[in-house]
């Protein structure tokens, strides 16, 4: 028999881990598309912040989480297009332009917040969905079936992304462009068009990631609301070796370890919080070592701008 105290801790860790994996999953899956097509978008964090603000502001005005989500997606698309313009058309150095987009998003979201909202307020975001029967199950109910719409959407996105990347012509094009843009170009695939598409898609998903924080998980906005989640999402794509399901596992691992250390602190099990907070990062490095060992097929043209006839 399991000790009821341990059981309740376990439920808390799993439920909280699943819930807080949401924003990582949206951002990381979006980033996966970009990276497989050969573009490293380090600006995810900036897109998330502006989108989080936009969603928050719209919900504050209208009380409609759906409209807020829409606003976030629009912001994500616009900033995704801008990223594509920078890295595809202008062939800007991706790591650095990403940091620029991040700084821009960090500043702009806070600036808009200061001008339009002034002080922190809560909003009514996506409510938790009560599924008859399932939500009331013991143990499984609280872990899996008491979340809001965006949590489920994030997990539903994973198989969808896998399908698109592996079973559709578009997915094939994306991988071809990331693996060997010259060859793809000779076959008549427009490298620029594919990369614009993946970055715009990635931008939209980053936008949803931001919205999931401001109008579903936290229901607030504050300066630097994301505090580094976008960067972690970028790293988790490598962690997951560009495969949606493994990326999802990385996201879950990350949020679970956080949930674990918080639960331990809350339950007065003494652990040095700094060491615990360090664990996900160390685990990611370890995972990167294993990923490299297994000779994962990596997008060969990642971060390399495509120039015809080079």
């Amino acid at each position: 028999m399991i000790d009821p105290f341990l059981l309740s801790m376990l439920i808390t860790i799993l439920a909280s881990g699943i819930r807080f994996a949401t924003s990582y999953i949206f951002a990381a899956i979006g980033e996966t598309f970009g990276q497989i097509s050969g573009v490293l978008n380090l600006g995810v964090e900036g897109i998330m912040l502006v989108a989080a603000y936009a969603a928050y502001f719209v919900v504050l005005q209208t009380n409609e989480p759906g409209l807020g989500l829409l606003a976030a997606i629009l912001v994500g698309i616009v900033m995704g297009l801008a990223t594509a313009f920078l890295s595809v058309t202008l062939k800007a150095e991706q790591g650095i332009s990403g940091i620029g987009v991040y700084l821009f998003g960090l500043g702009l979201s806070d600036l808009l917040f200061r001008v339009t909202v002034k002080s922190v307020q809560t909003v009514k975001g996506f409510p938790n969905i009560h599924i008859p029967a399932l939500s009331d199950l013991p143990i499984l109910g609280p872990i899996f079936f008491q979340h809001n719409l965006l949590v489920y959407a994030a997990f539903a996105l994973v198989p969808l992304a896998w399908f698109v990347l592996n079973k559709t012509t578009f997915g094939l094009q994306v991988r071809a462009v990331g693996q060997n843009p010259e060859a793809a170009d000779t076959l008549g695939i427009s490298v620029a068009r594919v990369r614009y598409t993946t970055l715009t898609l990635g931008g939209a998903l980053s936008g949803i990631a931001g919205a999931s924080l401001s109008i579903a998980l936290l229901n607030i906005f504050q300066q630097n609301l994301t505090s580094g989640q976008g960067f972690i999402a970028v790293a988790l794509v490598y962690f997951g070796a560009w495969q949606p399901f493994r990326v999802m596992l990385g996201c879950l691992l990350f949020s679970m370890v956080n949930a674990l250390q918080l639960t331990m602190q809350v339950n007065r099990i003494p652990i040095p919080a700094d060491i615990a907070l360090m664990m996900p990062y160390i685990l990611t490095i370890v995972a990167l070592i294993f990923a490299a060992r297994q000779l994962v097929i990596q997008p060969a043209a990642l971060t390399k701008p495509f120039e015809r006839g080079e």
């Binding site: 900036g46 940091i99 620029g100 991040y102 700084l103 960090l106 500043g107």
Partner: peptide
């Protein structure tokens, strides 16, 4: 910060 980001971009 916004200005910083703009200049970098």
């Amino acid at each position: 910060i916004t200005l910083d980001g703009l200049i970098v971009v």
